[in-house]
């Protein structure tokens, strides 16, 4: 039996004429890590603000942790943690002062504060930095500070808005380990990202484009049900080949990957390799391999419309 921590139906939000979110339906299961994948400006932050009660929707229904928004937003505050895209703690306070502040705001007693803050400092590797001003820290350190502030009151549901955008790859890995730890402890997580590899780590994800949800499901399901074949072609004149292939009806896209060309072909074509070989006037060579689709392929396939 699955229980939903977030349920949204037909959620919409406009900024003037701009439709930032259109008819979004969403179901996030308790205990899962749910991802929003999409390019900048696609509405990830707006969606998260709608789900945390910071913005009022123009239409649709949202229920988070069984509370209906925006009416019961105030009650929801104790149950959710929110890590904003832009660093939103105080630059002119130290790590420890920032955490103290949040702890007091959430009503922890002096004793509880002390033990919880020490715990967080060691879990997130900030012990040695505790007296450093937040404004003088590196991207990775700030991100860990933001996360520890967001989880300080042990929320059941955590919203993370592009948490790794200012962080190097090594720190990103480590950060995701920490998210899995939280998830194991029962925290439900909604995280937005524009990195494919991060989206692939989520239990489920929604692909957003221009405020519209293009697809959702687990990464595996999305890849299987993508509706396209992926063929890799090794040849010499890749740039010219690419231009030729893009004109072929049935080819969704072609992208160069080193010495190979990755070609997406609609799955209405039954034998894609034969299909490519039979194209008149195109010398495609012999080295054609059908490969497993990646999340990027899924992304490209389902967001193609907006691009052309």
């Amino acid at each position: 039996m699955s229980e939903f921590v977030i349920k949204a139906e037909n959620l919409s939000r406009n900024f003037g004429d701009l439709k930032a979110i259109q008819n979004l339906d969403l179901e996030v299961e308790k205990g899962s890590i749910y991802g929003f994948l999409g390019p900048n400006g696609c509405g990830k932050t707006t969606a998260i603000r709608l789900l945390t009660g910071l913005l009022k929707p123009n239409g649709g229904k949202v229920e988070v942790m069984g509370l209906s928004l925006p009416k019961e937003a105030e009650k929801l505050r104790l149950h959710i943690g929110y890590m904003t895209q832009k660093f939103s703690l105080y630059d002119d306070l130290t790590v420890k002062e920032n955490l103290q502040f949040i702890a007091k705001i959430f009503g922890l007693s002096a004793k509880q504060r002390k033990s919880r803050i020490n715990e967080l400092l060691s879990v997130y590797g900030l012990d040695k930095k505790q007296n450093q001003l937040a404004g003088s820290m590196s991207g990775g350190q700030r991100q860990r500070l933001s996360l520890s502030a967001a989880v300080l009151h042990k929320p059941e549901l955590l919203f993370l808005d592009e948490p790794t955008s200012a962080v190097d790859p090594e720190n990103r890995r480590e950060f995701w380990e920490q998210l899995f730890d939280l998830s194991d402890q029962g925290t439900s997580i909604l995280v937005s990202t524009h990195y494919m590899d991060e989206a692939e780590r989520c239990h489920k994800l929604a692909i957003l484009e221009a405020g519209i949800k293009r697809a959702d499901g687990s990464p595996e399901d999305l890849m299987q049900q993508m509706g396209a074949h992926v063929i890799e072609v090794a040849a010499t004149n890749l740039r010219q080949l690419k231009q030729q292939l893009l004109k072929v009806d049935g080819v969704i896209t072609a992208a160069q990957l080193g010495a190979r060309l990755r070609v997406l072909i609609r799955d209405s074509v039954l034998d894609p390799i034969a299909f490519l070989r039979e194209q008149p006037g195109i010398d495609i060579g012999d080295e054609l391999v059908k490969v497993r689709p990646s999340l990027e392929d899924v992304f490209v396939t389902c967001t193609g419309e907006g691009r052309q």
Partner: peptide, 13 residues
């Protein structure tokens, strides 16, 4: 301006 408000208003204050 510094974006602190977005964090503050998600707390119970």
């Amino acid at each position: 301006e510094h974006g602190n408000l977005e964090m503050l208003i998600t707390t119970p204050v």
